[in-house]
Design a protein around this nucleic acid. Structure first.
Length: 632
RNA sequence: GCCUUCGUAGCCUAGCCCGGUGGGGCGUUACCUUGGUAAGGUAAUGGUCGCGGGUCCAAAUCCCGCCGAAGGCUCCA
């Protein structure tokens, strides 16, 4: 049996003439049905009533999802070249109709045996079009790995087999390296891991609140939606641009210290390049496509292409390996579905540091993997996201675990927190092992930050080779690592974390090195402006971002506004301070407690806290009265 | 893409159900106030009520279509 299932706005059909002599009686009139799932159905040799019921049951499963309860069974012989006898076919079609009605479905049927004309309007969503094929006997068809973007289901048996291959078996990998099936694991005291597991496995969501980081990114003048672009393409205000730039610099610095060689590669690539087109098929991201003269190009959705094409042309041997290439893409483009794009969490254009390491063999890859694992955790920690802020998932096949149990156990021991493990029976992605660190936000949704994976496929695909000890060409293993994840996502995580801390009664703030204003000076009156400016210059000369609130508001209001801007240190300056040289510093970290210190002591205190981090000067005019407001 | 909800000044929002001159707050500007650690006072300014069509004597309000956003679904290397 073959069924083409179409979720339609409407269908209009009209019987024209009888094609066979057993055709049913029908009037040659137009029938119009609105909001209906149309089942174009061909009955094949050997089909039974049981199969008819199964077909209806499968269709019912979709009716629920589509929120429709109306079907049209439309006999359509052209789907098969192995049709059954018309008399049997009619009987089965009728069985389908009776069964569907018995299940409470509003069922229509087009007459059997007629040549009919029809007009149909199909809905555009992914589930709208679906082809199904039912084999009459359980002959094992060959299994195929389902391919993303294909709106067709494989024959049942093949689909079942593929499902078995793709089926994820969820476990918790404990710090001693043992696996506990998720149903048996006690999440006591591990509520974030539980939330993350739920999100990964069941995708449960129940919140209707706007993600807290969205109003924050606007109010703090970090970033905003850009209505003049495509959804998920963000505008960055001066403060946000500065933060993003610092994060970019920091991650790039750390990768350089690790040994990554920074390169730059094109934003757009030829759709028809042989290596690229086969990679595209393995990577289920939707692209931005553009035409230039007679070429079709796509905007890159990862940094892999440029680096792989570069590695393809490079000459290297085992003596130089592992070789590490690095690029920070500004931007990677993924045309996420409009309903999925949200705030800084999921974008269509995002900044992605990506470091690939080309390794000779699994031993070298494992060693390198471990080094990068440390690097990622340390980078995130310095950005302001510690182990309590994220959960880890590790994904591998049954066989890989069996063969590398000690290695996986050592990763688990190093992380020192239980790990969500996704285990497959067979490998169907290009990696043998992958982990990702996931931030769990205030809506209990998870977003991946850092990740690393051992790629066992792409060297061959891109023709990347190295020369081994015997002078023979070999394919390397490739590690893909983003030490921080997307930079935008880091900012999302920092804002969500700040919001969470606010909920627990703490003053929300950004890490000191990322705060656009680190010190705010508030003169008590205009009379002190000159002296305050001198103080500002003294502080700014030591690479600290300081500004002056010279607006016309009252003192109290200026303090309130500085607090609402999350300024870490606020200093009111008047006669006392200028004469004594002692400043009364309001410390946000300590909920606004005031502490007396000299300017030099403050400078030392801040310098120690931001040591080792990149610096950028104040991204806005020194005087608040000279600043435009970018949002409200 | 689908479903639900929502679009009112630069920002937040009342009014919509039950049609009859769109109200408040923040901001901005001006004036008064020059202050000692989270909102000083007065006034002025600012609106194609998302866009288009319909119903009606009359539409922010009711109806239809479209656009945009948020949440959900789906998807998520």
């Amino acid at each position: 049996m073959r069924i083409l299932q179409l979720h339609s706005n409407f269908i209009v059909f009209k019987p024209v003439e009888k094609e066979i002599n057993i055709a049913e009686e029908a009037a040659k009139e137009e029938t119009r049905i609105e909001e209906v799932v149309v089942l174009f159905t061909a009955i094949e040799e050997g089909d039974s009533s049981a199969l008819a019921q199964k077909a209806i049951d499968d269709a019912r499963a979709f009716l629920g999802k589509l929120k429709v309860n109306r079907i049209l069974i439309y006999p359509f012989a052209h789907l098969s070249s192995n049709l059954s006898q018309p008399s049997q076919a009619l009987a089965i079609i009728k069985d389908m109709e009776v069964y569907a009605k018995s299940k409470g479905i509003e069922t229509f049927r087009a007459p059997f045996g007629w040549n009919k004309q029809f007009t149909i309007s199909i809905k555009g969503h992914p589930l709208a079009e679906m082809a199904r094929s039912y084999a009459p006997v359980q002959a094992a068809a060959e299994a195929k790995v389902p391919c993303e973007g294909k709106k067709e289901e494989e024959p049942v048996s093949a689909a079942l087999k593929a499902e078995d291959t793709m089926k994820s078996y969820w476990h918790i990998l404990q710090t001693d390296g043992s696996l506990v099936p998720i149903e048996e694991y006690k999440f006591k005291g591990k509520s974030n891991l539980q939330k993350f597991s739920q999100y990964e496995i069941k995708k449960t969501r129940a919140v209707t609140q706007m993600p807290p980081h969205v109003p924050l990114m606007k109010r703090l003048e970090i970033a905003d939606y850009e209505p003049g672009s495509d959804p998920g393409n963000i505008r960055w205000y001066p403060k946000g641009r500065m933060m993003k730039s610092l994060l970019e610099q920091y991650v790039s610095l750390r990768v350089a210290q690790y040994g990554g060689m920074e390169v730059e590669t094109p934003l757009m690539y030829d759709f028809n390049h042989p290596s690229l087109s086969s990679y595209l098929n393995r990577f289920p991201a939707r692209q931005y496509v553009l035409k230039s003269e007679d070429k079709e190009l796509f905007l890159r959705f990862a940094a892999c292409f440029g680096q792989f094409l570069m590695a393809h042309d490079a000459q290297f041997s085992y003596k130089q390996m592992p070789i590490k290439l690095y690029e920070l893409t500004r931007y990677s483009f993924r045309r996420e579905k409009s309903g999925e794009v949200v705030g800084l969490k999921r974008l269509r254009a995002f900044t992605m540091p990506d470091c690939h390491a080309f390794c000779t063999d699994l031993e070298q890859a494992k060693k390198e993997f471990m080094i990068r694992f440390d690097l990622c955790i340390d980078v995130l920690g310095n950005i302001g996201l510690v182990k309590d802020d994220y959960e880890i998932a590790m994904r591998f096949t049954k066989d890989f675990y069996a063969e590398n149990k000690d290695f996986i156990a050592s990763l688990a021991a190093k992380f020192d927190k239980p790990i969500l493990a996704e285990v497959w029976n067979e490998r169907f992605f290009y990696f043998a092992l992958k982990w990702d660190l996931n931030f769990v936000d205030n809506q209990d949704k998870a977003a991946a930050l850092s990740t690393d994976q051992i790629d066992v496929e792409n060297a061959k695909r891109y023709g990347i080779t190295y020369v081994d000890e015997k002078g023979e060409k070999q394919f390397p293993l490739i590690l893909h690592c983003s030490p921080s994840g997307a930079i935008e996502r880091d900012i999302y995580a920092l804002l969500e974390k700040a919001y969470r801390e606010q909920m627990t009664g703490k003053a929300p703030m950004l890490p000191l090195w990322l705060s656009p204003t680190q010190v705010r000076l508030i003169p008590i009156s205009d009379r002190f402006l000159d002296k305050v400016e001198q103080l500002a210059q003294q502080i700014a000369a030591r690479c600290i971002r300081v500004d002056i609130d010279d607006s016309a508001s009252t003192l109290q209001k200026k303090i309130r506004e500085a607090e609402q801007e999350w300024v870490p240190y606020i200093i009111v300056v008047g006669e006392k301070e200028i004469e004594s040289g002692t400043l009364s510093v309001r410390d946000r970290e300590q909920k606004g407690k005031q502490e007396n210190m000299t300017a030099d002591q403050l400078i030392t205190k801040i310098s120690e806290k931001i040591a080792g981090k990149p610096f950028k000067p104040l991204p806005l005019p020194l005087y608040l009265s000279k600043r435009p407001s970018f949002h409200g």
